[in-house]
């Protein structure tokens, strides 16, 4: 048997677990071997004897022997993940899929729109962009959460604001008494940004419904279909373009994605059904 077994996970140790919100935790993991990945690529994480699920690392690809995964408790496997205490061994396969085309963003203004646990892959992206901050005109970041307590990476925001190219805006659906920022769904933040939308590169990641409203708003603002990057979430098993589970109207999200431009996915049933809702209005 050849040594490169695409189904066999590499062992990682869970070093530390941080509780981000009531249902999201960040897992700090490490391995003896370096692991190379591009920002936006994902990994398949195995819990021994329990199950496997896909996640996008939330840490920088510049760090190769350690990785962070931010995971929402959303069902069976993620529920078991949340029961870990630290010290366990987990398995990683990957990296899989195509990430963000960072080089294409050089010299442009960037707009990042994120909600909920969607901030995880965006953190990886932002950390990557900041490694070469001077290559970008401006990095606008719009983050949304249900309530202020539902923001993940709460300690990170003040750090982000120190970067001179970064403009960070945050909104919540439901404020608490200390909240002095914007109230409303994350797309309302776009009204606060004055940018040359015709030339901007925009990256959206969040719950499926936010992704669609985000894309719709960006299109209305005049952003080119080819400059709107979306992360699609589907069921997955292999991550290798073989098992068929991630099929999205003839695209394998694990291989052709998970990052797609709006142009690449506008023909899919999911997008067509969403945009049909607004057709007659």
């Amino acid at each position: 048997m050849a040594e490169n077994n695409i189904y066999k996970p590499i062992k990682y140790k869970v070093d530390k677990i941080v509780e981000e919100t009531s249902n999201i935790k960040t897992f700090f993991i490490s391995s003896e071997k370096d692991f190379e990945f591009d920002t936006g690529q994902f990994v398949e994480v195995t819990l021994d004897g329990i199950g496997e699920a896909p996640y996008t690392p939330s840490s920088s690809p510049y760090i190769k022997n350690k990785m962070e995964l931010t995971i929402m408790n959303a069902g069976y496997v993620t529920g078991k993940m949340h029961q870990l205490k630290g010290g366990e061994t987990i398995g990683i396969r990957g990296p899989f899929g195509k990430g963000y085309p960072i080089k294409k963003f050089y010299g442009t203004e960037i707009l990042i729109l994120g909600g909920g646990v969607g901030l995880a892959p965006l953190r990886c992206l932002i950390l990557t962009l900041l490694e070469e901050e001077d290559k970008f005109k401006k990095i606008n970041i719009c983050f949304g959460a249900k309530t202020p307590a539902d923001f993940i990476y709460k300690d990170w925001f003040s750090e982000l604001e120190k970067h001179k190219k970064v403009r960070l805006l945050r909104s919540v659906d439901v404020p608490d008494k200390d909240w002095d920022g914007t109230v409303g769904v994350v797309t309302v933040l776009l009204d606060e940004i004055k940018a040359n939308y015709q030339e901007i590169n925009s990256i959206v990641c969040g719950p499926p419904i936010m992704m669609k409203f985000g894309a719709k708003k960006l299109l209305e603002l005049g952003v080119n279909e080819k400059n709107i990057y979306l992360s699609m979430e589907t069921n997955m098993s292999c991550g290798l373009g073989k098992c068929g589970h991630c099929d999205m109207d003839g695209l394998y999200v694990c291989k052709d994605g998970p990052v797609f431009t709006f142009d690449e996915v506008k023909h899919t049933t999911e997008m067509k059904e969403f945009f049909r809702l607004f057709k007659d209005k």
């Binding site: 819990l47 021994d48 004897g49 073989k242 098992c243 068929g244 589970h245």
Partner: peptide
């Protein structure tokens, strides 16, 4: 199409789906 089913010791069964 198949499904990977997890077994102990990080073993996986590739099962028709």
């Amino acid at each position: 199409c198949f499904l990977l089913i997890d077994k102990e010791n990080f073993e996986k069964i590739k099962n028709w789906d």
